[in-house]
C-alpha cells in the first residue's frame, strides 16, 4: 500500500523538477515534456477538432507556446500537464474561431455557433478522460493491466485474479491504489487555476 504512495510521490518530484528545468530555459526539459505529453495534447486536439492536420498544427503550437511562455509556469507537479491542457484549449479555440470565420465568409453554416457551444462544453470531459487514460498507461505493471481489466474491460476482481494469476487480495489492493492514483492525477489537472 505504502509503495503506491511512494511511487506517486517520486513521480511528482520528477514532474516538478521537469517544470523547474523548463522555467530555467533548459531545452532538453522541453524534449522530455514533449515526449511525455505530446500524445495527450495531440489526442485532445484530434478529438476536439476532428482533423489530423489541425491536430498536428495545434500540437506544434502548444509546445512552442509552452516554451515561449515558460516563465509563466509555476513549477509544481500537477501544474505542468494542466498548464499544457490550458494552452491546448486556447489553441483549439483559435482554430474553431478561424473555422467559424471561414464558414461565415462562405455563408454556409447557419447553425454553427450552436454546434460550437456543444463541442466546447464537452471539451473539459474529453481532456479529463485523456488525463485518466494517460495516468493508467503510466502505472507500473501489473497495476496497469489490472486496472485496465477492472475499469476498461469491466472484469470482476475474481476474474482478474484468474487472468493475471495473482491472489484476490493483491488484485483488490492494486485496483484500489490504481483508482486513487488516477484520482490524484485528475485532481491535479482540475484544481489548477487556468
Amino acid at each position: 500500500m505504502v509503495t503506491g504512495v511512494r511511487e506517486f510521490e517520486e513521480q511528482d518530484d520528477v514532474v516538478r523538477s521537469l517544470a523547474a528545468r523548463l522555467v530555467a530555459g533548459d531545452e532538453s526539459a522541453l524534449e522530455v515534456i514533449y515526449d511525455r505529453w505530446s500524445a495527450l495534447v495531440h489526442t485532445y486536439a484530434l478529438r476536439a477538432l476532428g482533423d489530423a492536420h489541425d491536430a498536428e498544427d495545434v500540437t506544434q503550437q502548444v509546445f512552442v507556446a509552452a516554451w515561449r511562455s515558460r516563465h509563466t509556469l509555476t513549477p509544481s507537479a500537477s501544474a505542468l500537464p494542466a498548464w499544457l491542457i490550458g494552452i491546448a484549449r486556447h489553441k483549439i479555440a483559435d482554430v474553431r474561431e478561424a473555422r467559424a470565420r471561414d464558414a461565415r465568409r462562405s455563408e454556409a453554416v447557419a447553425a454553427l455557433p450552436v454546434l460550437d457551444a456543444v463541442d466546447q462544453s464537452a471539451d473539459g470531459e474529453v481532456a479529463e478522460r485523456l488525463v485518466v487514460r494517460q495516468a493508467v498507461d503510466e502505472l507500473p505493471d501489473p497495476r496497469r493491466t489490472i486496472v485496465l481489466l477492472a475499469f476498461w474491460q469491466g472484469l470482476s476482481h475474481t476474474e482478474i485474479a484468474e487472468t493475471v494469476g495473482l491472489p484476490l487480495g493483491t488484485v483488490k489492493s492494486h485496483v484500489r491504489r490504481g483508482l486513487i492514483q488516477l484520482h490524484q492525477q485528475l485532481e491535479g489537472v482540475r484544481h489548477v487555476p487556468r
Binding site: A39, E56, E128, Q134, F151, H183, L186
Partner: peptide, 13 residues
C-alpha cells in the same frame, strides 16, 4: 474517475 476510466488509448503525433 471511475466514470471517466473508459477512454481510448492516446494517439501520439
Amino acid at each position: 474517475v471511475r466514470r471517466l476510466a473508459d477512454g481510448e488509448p492516446l494517439v501520439a503525433p
